[in-house]
């Protein structure tokens, strides 16, 4: 066997292995969660409240909690990221853009727990005193910090997409007398929208999957949050809190329902990105 064929086999093996891990993960969760699929239990777990005292182990409050925290995070991160990446691409290219970009790249490397820690000691008291309601551990606090956490990744995605818009388009617009703002709104953002949507979808995946921020800042109350200042529990935080309970208990089994839900969400996001990429020019 020549070298090339050996290399081919090795790479194929690596690809098959990593792909099968992804599939096996799902199989593993479904097998361990199998008792949940009998007699409509899975549906009940998805729709019921969490009241262990009354033997009700539904994760509906956690689904709502996850969606609330993640949507707020995206609502914070999206305008912020679009603004910063526009600044890098149009408003202040050159040294300032370079500086901002390095700062953003550095931010992506800060461990999540640092954000959580700062949130506990700075943002939580601020939110509690400002709104004079609740403990400050709430959807709002977690959403704000999570937004800041995912923003750097989103900014890098957006700036790459904006930078890939052909220079000739930009030059043509400028030759027609367009101001930098007009270039941004009518040429760059439309040209880069696929990259922008990709960044948005992947960042949403990250916001939904993040555990530590929700665990440290959202309060973890197993209730459907009635507002931004209510304590809420995310699916990920629920897994972290319940994993220590008895293996054979039903509450432990709900972990698999949460895992399957998170897996399904990530899979859907990935498929959406793929579809988008296939439609037009290569996105990544």
């Amino acid at each position: 066997m020549d070298g090339e064929r050996i290399a081919q086999k090795v790479f194929l093996l690596a690809a098959v292995l990593s792909a099968s891990v992804t599939v096996l993960l799902l199989v593993f969760m479904v097998i361990l969660g199998l008792p949940l699929f009998q007699g409509g239990l899975f549906l009940r777990i998805l729709t019921h409240p969490w009241l262990p005292g009354r033997q009700l182990f539904g994760v509906w409050p956690m689904i709502v909690g996850t969606l609330a925290i993640a949507s707020l995070a995206m609502a914070v991160a999206f305008p912020l990221s679009l603004g910063v990446s526009s600044l890098i691409a149009v408003v202040a290219p050159g040294r300032i853009a370079h500086l901002v970009k390095s700062a953003v790249a550095f931010m992506t490397g800060i461990p999540t727990v640092v954000y959580g820690f700062v949130g506990v000691f700075l943002l939580v008291p601020l939110v509690r005193e400002t709104f004079a309601r609740g403990s400050g551990l709430c959807v709002l606090t977690a959403g704000l910090v999570l937004g800041i956490l995912v923003a750097p990744t989103m900014i890098l995605f957006f700036s790459d997409a904006l930078a890939r818009v052909p220079g000739s388009h930009r030059v043509a617009a400028e030759a027609l007398g367009a101001t930098p703002a007009q270039v941004l709104v009518y040429v760059l953002i439309p040209g880069a929208w696929r990259g922008i949507v990709t960044g948005l979808v992947l960042s949403t995946g990250r916001a939904v999957g993040d555990t530590l921020i929700a665990l440290m800042l959202a309060g973890n109350a197993a209730q459907v949050p009635g507002g931004l200042l209510d304590s809420a529990r995310a699916l990920t935080a629920h897994i972290a809190l319940v994993i220590a309970s008895d293996f054979d208990s039903l509450e432990f089994k709900t972990i698999f329902a949460c895992g399957i839900l998170l897996y399904a969400f990530t899979a859907a996001a990935t498929i959406a990105v793929r579809r988008l990429g296939r439609k037009g020019e290569p996105v990544r």
Binding site: P49, W50, L51, P52, G53, P61, S135, L137, L215, G219, N220, A221, A222, Q223, D230, S231, R233, A240, L241, V242, A244, S245, E251
Partner: peptide
């Protein structure tokens, strides 16, 4: 505290006489 906590177990049994803990309670690990 979370459900795996021994501290919670004792507090719930001896101080609350197994009474309800409201769902709005924040949970720390």
């Amino acid at each position: 505290r979370d459900e795996a906590s021994g501290t919670r177990d004792v507090f719930w049994k001896r101080a609350l006489d197994k009474g309800d803990i409201h769902a709005k309670a924040n949970v720390v690990p």
